[in-house]
Simulated assay, not measured.
Amino acid sequence: MLTGLPRTIRRHELRLIVPLADSTIYGMEKRGEFPRRFNLTPRCVVWDLEEVEAWLEQRRQTYLAGRAKVAPGPDVRHRKARPVKAQEADI
């Protein structure tokens, strides 16, 4: 195996490493929140594996430090099927 050389990954390999939708990754790239893809040929798009691994590690450290944005859970009181009724303490 070659060592010390930059390694690129294609889309199917990226999906195995980063389980996000293509549209999510594309949007994050446009906002500068994810490593940018580049074309090797007009039909071959790749990412730098080292950049992707560094991004993952940075995200992990942000989460462990408690600085990650986490989406709130759904408000189950607004469900159409089996809504949870407000209790006296919630009112």
Rank of each mutant, 00 (worst) to 15 (best):
L2E: 05
T3A: 13
T3M: 12
T3S: 14
L5Y: 06
L5V: 09
P6D: 02
R7L: 13
R7D: 07
T8H: 10
T8L: 09
T8R: 01
T8W: 04
I9P: 03
R10M: 04
H12M: 11
H12V: 12
H12T: 07
E13C: 03
E13V: 06
L14V: 00
R15Q: 07
R15E: 01
L16I: 01
L16E: 07
I17Y: 01
I17V: 07
I17K: 07
P19C: 05
P19T: 09
P19W: 10
A21D: 12
D22K: 07
D22M: 09
D22L: 04
S23V: 07
S23H: 01
T24W: 02
Y26P: 04
M28N: 12
E29Q: 08
K30R: 15
R31A: 07
R31H: 08
R31K: 11
R31Y: 03
G32C: 02
G32I: 04
G32P: 03
E33N: 10
E33W: 04
E33R: 14
F34V: 08
F34I: 10
R37W: 02
R37L: 00
R37E: 04
F38E: 06
F38Q: 09
N39D: 10
N39E: 01
L40K: 04
L40I: 02
T41A: 08
C44M: 12
C44F: 15
C44S: 10
V45R: 05
V45S: 01
V45P: 02
V46I: 06
D48M: 05
L49R: 11
E50G: 09
E50C: 03
E51G: 00
E51F: 03
E51V: 00
V52N: 05
V52K: 02
V52Q: 05
E53T: 01
A54E: 10
A54M: 06
L56C: 11
L56Y: 01
L56R: 09
L56K: 07
L56W: 10
E57F: 08
Q58H: 06
R59H: 09
R59Q: 15
R60G: 11
Q61G: 11
Q61R: 12
T62Y: 12
L64D: 15
L64R: 13
L64Y: 12
A65L: 14
A65V: 11
G66L: 04
G66N: 07
R67A: 15
R67H: 15
R67F: 15
A68G: 13
A68E: 10
A68C: 13
K69L: 15
K69H: 12
K69A: 14
V70S: 12
A71S: 13
P72K: 03
P72R: 00
P72E: 10
G73M: 14
P74G: 14
P74M: 15
D75K: 08
H78Y: 14
H78A: 11
R79Q: 04
R79E: 04
K80N: 13
A81S: 15
A81C: 12
A81D: 11
R82T: 14
P83K: 08
V84D: 10
V84E: 13
V84M: 07
K85Y: 02
A86V: 13
Q87D: 08
E88G: 02
E88D: 03
A89N: 14
D90T: 01
D90R: 07
D90I: 02
I91H: 15
